[in-house]
Nucleic acid binder design. Structure first.
Lengths: 217, 217, 217, 217
DNA sequence: GATGAATGAGGGTTCATTCAT
DNA sequence: TATGAATGAACCCTCATTCAT
């Protein structure tokens, strides 16, 4: 009996940070960093406010942990996809976009992008941290995929450095819009259609052998 | 004359709102809506805190006025460009993008997009206002340009509703990134190159007769 | 023509304080001293805020002037009634009560009592002023009427000093309640019935030869 | 033990509300609702401003709690007196008046009446609350006592509805005057004499068999 | 005399953070 | 380890008062 109790407590103890991070992600995304009360984060995680400070030095550190927790695994996976991929780069492109959507975009974690845009100014350190740990890796990934396509003669020769951002933009925006719909949009964007349209236009703009999508030209 | 302008009691009812709006835009963009102190806005405009309230009912109304002041003229102008345009839709596309960049993107006003993404959740009324007064008009504009191109057989048949957002995304993101560079980026994006790349890829993705840019295909 | 204009202005100038006092009485009574904005007083009087300060040194002085303006004439008149009265003191009592009601209680000025209770603590000088200029005269008046009745053998021998306040209380309260009804009462007191009841009970309590009102004893 | 009470981190969740209510009553009565700074209330209770908000949602709720805390017990007790009373209604009347004086009038709580008159206009919700929770009960109580006297043939037939207010008035006024004396009166009313006089006049006005008080008639 | 733009101190309220228990 | 009572700095907004015109 006592043993079980201890075990439960012990397991509890190790689960705490995860529970707090999950609660924090939920509320940060829903309400924004500033508007999120640590009281509510603690309550949602089922602990008291004081406990939060046992695991995270302050609100900012909690934010950083939320970013790390939610972005790193998805990046690992995406890098894996690129490394393993064989075949036409258009397919790799599609797979990456769709995979990212399934792994992040369709998730609460999609709101992190918005959060960062919002708070970059107020918390330069967080912005730098995010740039180091997330943006750089993401951009490197896209670069690899693009360069692979160009090297294989499947993509046109484009300015890789700029193309990375141009390519990332519609996805980041979709995540942002999708996150904030409840608040302002009456006619929500349908993510699936949006992504199809994006891939259609973008691939057509990129391919050496354009494939005219729905219509036969 | 100039000396008068410095006077404490200078009666400048006409100039005040503009000065306050300019100061507010500066600080809102730099620090975010929440983190901006009205005290600082007033100080930057060279007046006392109370004066601000002679011209704007509260912080939220000030924000709305900032949006109106900075976006409406640019939208007017862009609509004018579309209405007057004759010739190939690719040129219209280029002109619109570059015009918007010159008129807004290259300006402090570029930060408004970021502000809205950040604060949409916390201030639904502002989000609704922005959607009504800015987003709707912007989207309608892009729709007109797209449909014009399709009708004239210059653009492929794409799903207009989604394409609007896909096309707007890279520009909105550029404005956002460009605004927040100081805080987080080490390798800033060059707007001109970015826009060239965007136009190159997306226009080619849209055109019936793709013109493969720098390389001969 | 010019002469007329000047005349009108001149007349205006002399009327200003009265207009301001009337506006101030209205708003003080309706909203309380603190909640009344000098801006609104000025607006109601049809002048600008600055003008108010040409006639009254500050808000407190305006308050004192309002008291003086509205109470002194009614007191003069009531003293006159006592001085002139001949006949039974019960009739004098009735006449005084009803006269006061017609002259003050039924008027915006009735609210001044409430104002004073509210602000006595915050503005001791106003309280002292009111006590000197109003309460003392009012009490002296009641004392004269009481003592007249006792001296003529019409009233019982009562402790004059206390009876003054006991007699004043129901009238002051009626003015107060009547003023604040809109805000809190659902079943408003009917002033006429209330005064009848007050006179019935208190007069019977004072008289040597009680006249039992509605019922024959 | 006593030392513990002085500690900064003394956990006194149970005692706090009472201490805060006592401090609030003191200051509200002394300075009025508006003029009382929550900072001062907190300081007087020996806590910081923030602590106040752990126990009361806002200033208005604090006020309502002050009313409840101080009036409800006295009303309970008075109702009990009526319920238990046997014997002549004149004695009940005396007991009620004197009991109320001992329980409320002689207390800081006496100032609550004044507060309400003063603030009824500015805070309608408080006025409604007070009317519901205090005035109605008080009036019902007086009504019962009056009707009891009439039913037993001890009091004259008077218009109960009006008599209630006429009767309450002198007591409410005494509480008000007694509270604000420090500020304005030079010749304070002696509550005991005042109440004697009031009871004397009022009972004589009410009784079927008048008892001529101090003097033999 | 009259105006009204400008001032700036002041107060209610919130919430990240602390620390005795 | 966990708690939650307590803190206090910070900010939006109001409004009596001033004074250049």
């Amino acid at each position: 009996m006592e043993c079980q109790l201890k075990k439960r407590w012990a397991r509890r103890k190790e689960a705490r940070p995860q529970e707090l991070l999950a609660a924090a992600l939920d509320l940060f995304v829903e309400r924004g960093f500033n508007a999120t009360r640590l009281d509510d984060v603690a309550k949602l995680a089922g602990v008291s406010k004081g406990t939060l400070y046992l695991y995270f030095a302050n609100k900012e550190e909690l934010f950083k942990a939320v970013i790390r927790e939610n972005m790193v695994p998805a990046l690992d996976e995406a890098e894996d996809v690129i490394a393993r991929h064989e075949g036409h780069s258009a397919d790799l492109f599609r797979e990456l976009v769709m995979g990212w959507w399934a792994r992040v975009g369709n998730t609460k974690a999609a709101g992190i992008s918005k959060l960062l845009m919002a708070e970059a100014g107020n918390f330069p350190e967080i912005a730098r941290f995010h740039h180091e740990e997330v943006v750089k890796r993401r951009d490197a990934m896209i670069a690899r995929a693009l360069e692979r396509g160009i090297a294989r003669g499947e993509f046109r020769q484009v300015d890789t450095k700029e193309a990375i951002s141009v390519l990332a933009a519609p996805i980041v925006m979709l995540m942002t819009w999708n996150t904030s719909f409840n608040a302002c949009r009456i006619d929500p964007i349908d993510p699936q259609h949006y992504l199809d349209c994006f891939i259609d236009i973008f691939l057509n703009g990129l391919l050496c052998q354009p494939v005219r999508g729905k219509q036969a030209v």
